[in-house]
Design a protein around this nucleic acid. Structure first.
Length: 864
RNA sequence: GCCGCGGUGGUGAAAUUGGUAUACACGCCAGUCUUAGGAACUGGUAGGUUUUCCUGUGCGAGUUCGAGUCUCGCCCGCGGCACCA
């Protein structure tokens, strides 16, 4: 027998597939239903393909091949997320232009992907760093801009005073510039934003159609629950109340007031002070009346120097009182002091909060540091985790009475602010609201505020607009021109793409590298023709990846990002797979882009990815993350070399559930390798007999095994349980390997099942049938690729064994196992069980109370 | 801290509505073949008892004829978010 030479055979079929592209291409004209199966396109890093890529691409490759064999017109494309910081950093370090290093890396990725037999439609390959692609990224920018969804606004950035430039967060060390050691401050700078916050809630399209927003859309798509929850948390919707506190200046009520946002208005009678964020404009409006202006200013200045990161890291809650003014609680007219503290975030809510130290951990901490009053107004509701409070105790079991003292003490501690209580409960010491449950109190208090004109219900979101401008070279230039006369002007569509200049020094000076290129920077205004300058920032790479799945529908189109016809034909994506690290950013941005297009009538769906799955991370053999510095990285090339591509594919699928984290084991690769060797051996050594339709000579277990296997493999691929599909194929081979003569039809069907997992070996064996077959009419069939075969169907009746083992339990313990015919009646089964000698030992002389029968599985006898 | 996911042999892991726990594979042990190494093949492989049972799915309760699976309370590990009022 010739040994399976994986190197030679895999090369052979990879060449065959390249010569026969129609096997993997989506068909332009077809009556078959479409299926769009997409992988998150990779960033072509210098490190090459990672085993995690292999896991992702193999899973969807199996699925795509399976779908094609089930008569779907499958679109399974690939491309390159080529812009990005790493290429630029590599360029700076090695002096190689990012364009060159990126394209070298892409070549390497292509070779590696082809070496594991992934059936991509290469005719639709895209590269986000090519002008043909980023022309449309720029078009999207203009599209958003024209619809008021892209805008420029001042935003905080790290500014180095001596370099006169912005630096990235990573370039700030201990509040100083990494390069010059100069002081870094937070400075408001003009930045570009996309208005993603417009699409949080459901919206109407221009044509009047209703679409789901970023929150509700999640309910109608098949995504991992954890991913949906992450997105919801990121959006961070919270419903609360805005309360207006009047400001009292040196004992006079003033016309000014300040608004706070709270989700716990039920605690407002416990408010003992109010806190403003340092960014708040309230203090600047009160300048003339603040008696400690200098102290306040110093605190604000000190805050400005801190980065957001430092502000959060600071564990001590600092702040200063704004003296000379007081805030008046609208509910009880109490005057409370006003503080300014950096634990309050300026950009969220109103940038001011009412502090209730008895019921909020942060306020509690701050109050302790500054010796402020604490006043508890919420106590645990009567029964909570066995803790009983107040009058109710008398109505409950006497044995609980000893809790009384404890409960009263707790209640007292909360009231005095000695103990903090942050949950909902019952309101006390709050005038007419006392005795209400937190939730009722919130409703009634908010209603009162609205009636008095002193507040309102308000929904706030954590999600901010998306800051898309980057002061970097290796990205798509933002297509905007600044003219002294006309101001901000959009580049005309006919002038797209705004080419990324190749002649600039891409090394970072802190400023946008593009600003240095005169040929790029100096232009004439498209409106008035006067001298003007280009925007020199580039776009965040996430912008490129927010729409690439649309481009695949029509990747060569020169007139549009994709034709409506092709979008309609292929979108939305039916199955999307990629790493869980993209649960928030990429997936949220892509959904945003889809919703914008839906709103303006370009597409008629509002969710881009109907079904999403993540592959679990593959760890190194030592259980740690694979990393260059630890030297524990497994290179897929080495595995292909040593074991073969098919063995690598099956190993990665056999490791465990696709979405779980798993550790690599070089030793365990032997399993799939042995399995494939066994398959090869059986097809080469055993006699395959053509037994026509009835196959009378063949023991029934063989066709039963075949049908069981077809069923299991089919269902398991459909549900992404590749590991158990493979173990079923192993069981099949173990069983068939015991016989010398094997029915050819069964082995052929098995080979078709195996083909998506081990495409090279399957093609090789399939093609070998062409010579071996006795029936000359079959020769043509075997000369074709196995992937043109139809996926086998199973006969449910043939998946059932004739005899099964029935378990007999007595009082829940197994006492006998009896072989029975599957089809016998319940009466017969019970009779057989009760007559068993082993069972009689336990039932003799006892009353049989109950006999439970589970068809084909077990009898449970209950005796007294 | 909050949210999510998980905990089953020496290892990776299986297990429809609750219904035979440990399928499949790795590793290990023994045997066959071989000059030998390796490969291949056959058998064994949860623990305790020894030929018949008992105990076993992180820990402790509960529901049930029956719990890895359901309920409650803990412990541990991993991932994400983290001063969002």
């Amino acid at each position: 027998m010739k040994k399976y030479n994986h190197k030679k055979i895999e090369k052979k079929w990879q060449k065959y597939w390249e010569d026969n592209l129609e096997l993997s291409q989506a068909q332009e004209n077809s009556d078959k239903p479409k299926f769009y199966c997409l992988d998150m396109f990779p960033y072509p890093s210098g490190a090459g393909l990672h085993v995690g890529h292999v896991e992702n691409y193999t899973a969807t490759d199996i699925y795509s091949r399976f779908k094609r064999m089930n008569d779907f017109n499958v679109l399974h494309p690939i491309g390159w997320d080529a812009f990005g910081l790493p290429a630029e950093n590599f360029a700076i370090k090695q002096g190689v232009h990012p364009d060159k290093s990126t394209h070298d890396n892409i070549k390497n990725f292509i070779n590696q992907i082809k070496s594991i037999g992934i059936s991509y439609d290469w005719s639709r390959e895209i590269d986000t760093s090519s002008p043909e692609y980023y022309k449309w990224t720029q078009w999207f920018f203009l599209f958003l801009y024209k619809n008021g969804l892209a805008y420029k606004k001042k935003a905080k950035a790290n500014w180095c005073e001596s370099c006169k430039t912005v630096v990235a967060n990573e370039q700030v060390v201990d509040g100083k510039c990494e390069r010059c050691g100069g002081e870094i401050i937070q400075k408001d700078l003009e930045q570009w934003f996309f208005k993603i916050t417009d699409f949080i809630e459901d919206f109407k399209g221009e044509n009047g159609k209703e679409f789901s927003g970023l929150i509700n859309g999640l309910d109608k798509i098949d995504w991992p629950n954890s991913t949906k929850i992450s997105q919801k948390n990121w959006i961070g919707k919270s419903e609360g109340t805005i309360v207006s506190f009047e400001i009292k200046i040196s004992n006079e009520k003033s016309a000014t007031s300040l608004n706070v946002f709270t989700t716990r208005v039920d605690t407002i009678f416990g408010c003992t002070y109010v806190v403003l964020a340092p960014e708040s404009s309230v203090t600047s409006n009160l300048k003339s009346v603040i008696s400690n202006q200098k102290e306040v200013d110093e605190y604000i200045e000190a805050t400005k120097k801190k980065t957001d990161l430092e502000r959060m890291e600071n564990k001590e809650k600092t702040g200063v009182e704004v003296k000379g003014v007081k805030a008046i609680n609208p509910f009880n007219n109490e005057e409370v002091p006003i503080y300014i503290a950096d634990y309050v975030i300026g950009s969220y809510g109103t940038g001011a909060v009412m502090a209730v130290p008895a019921h909020d951990e942060r306020d509690f901490e701050f109050a302790n540091n500054h010796n402020l009053l604490k006043k508890g107004v919420i106590i645990p509701s009567p029964i909570k985790s066995g803790l009983l409070i107040g009058d109710e105790i008398d109505n409950v079991n006497d044995s609980y009475k000893h809790f009384d003292d404890y409960a009263n003490k707790k209640k007292d501690n909360i009231r005095k602010g000695i103990e903090i209580f942050v949950e909902d409960g019952t309101v006390i010491d709050s005038g007419e609201y006392s005795g209400l449950k937190s939730e009722e109190a919130r409703e009634k208090m908010t209603a009162w505020l609205e009636k008095e004109g002193k507040g309102e219900m308000k929904v706030n979101y954590r999600l901010r607009d998306w800051l898309v401008s980057r002061q970097r070279y290796w990205g798509a230039p933002i297509p905007i021109i600044y003219c002294d006369k006309c101001g901000e002007v959009a580049v005309l569509e006919k002038d797209l793409p705004v080419m990324l200049p190749t002649d600039v020094d891409f090394k970072p000076t802190g400023e946008s590298p593009l600003a240095i290129s005169k040929s790029f920077h100096d232009v004439t205004c498209p409106l008035c023709g006067e001298k003007a300058r280009r925007e020199s920032d580039t776009m965040d790479t996430f912008v490129c990846s927010s729409w690439y799945y649309l481009r695949f529908a029509d990747s060569q189109n020169k007139e549009e990002f994709a034709s409506r016809e092709n979008l309609e034909k292929w979108l939305p994506v039916d199955l999307y797979m990629g790493g869980a690290e993209h649960t928030v950013l990429h997936l949220l941005y892509a959904r945003f882009f889809t919703k914008v297009l839906a709103k303006y009538g370009y597409i008629n769906f509002d969710e881009p990815f109907l079904k999403l799955r993540h592959q679990g991370m593959i760890m190194a053999e030592d259980g740690r993350k694979m990393s260059k510095s630890l030297g524990n990285v497994v290179n897929p090339d080495d595995v292909v070399e040593g074991f073969g591509a098919d063995a690598l594919r099956i190993y990665e699928m056999f490791m465990g559930p696709i979405d779980e984290m798993k550790a690599w084991s070089m030793q365990n690769v032997n399993g799939p390798k042995n399995f494939l060797d066994k398959v090869w051996k059986i097809f080469n050594e055993k006699e395959l007999i053509d037994c026509g339709g009835d196959c009378k000579d063949i023991p029934r277990e063989l066709p039963v095994m075949l049908h069981k296997t077809i069923k299991k493999v089919t269902i398991d691929i459909e549900s992404f349980n590749f590991n158990t599909a493979i173990s079923q194929m192993m069981i099949f081979i173990n069983e068939f390997g015991k016989h010398d003569k094997l029915p050819k039809f069964a082995m052929e069907k098995f080979l078709i099942l195996l083909a998506p997992f081990a495409p090279h070996m399957a093609e090789e064996i399939w093609s070998s049938f062409a010579e071996a077959t006795a029936d000359k009419s079959d020769v043509e069939k075997y000369k074709q690729s196995i992937f043109l075969q139809k996926w086998p169907e199973f006969d449910e009746a043939m998946t059932k064994d004739e005899e099964v083992e029935m378990v007999v339990q007595v009082n829940g313990k197994i006492r006998d196992r009896i072989k029975i015919n599957t089809e016998i009646s319940e009466e017969e089964a019970k009779k057989i069980a009760l007559e068993s000698e082993k069972v009689k030992v336990y039932t003799e002389g006892k009353e049989i109370r109950k006999v439970i029968y589970v068809k084909g599985k077990l009898i449970s006898i209950v005796v007294g």
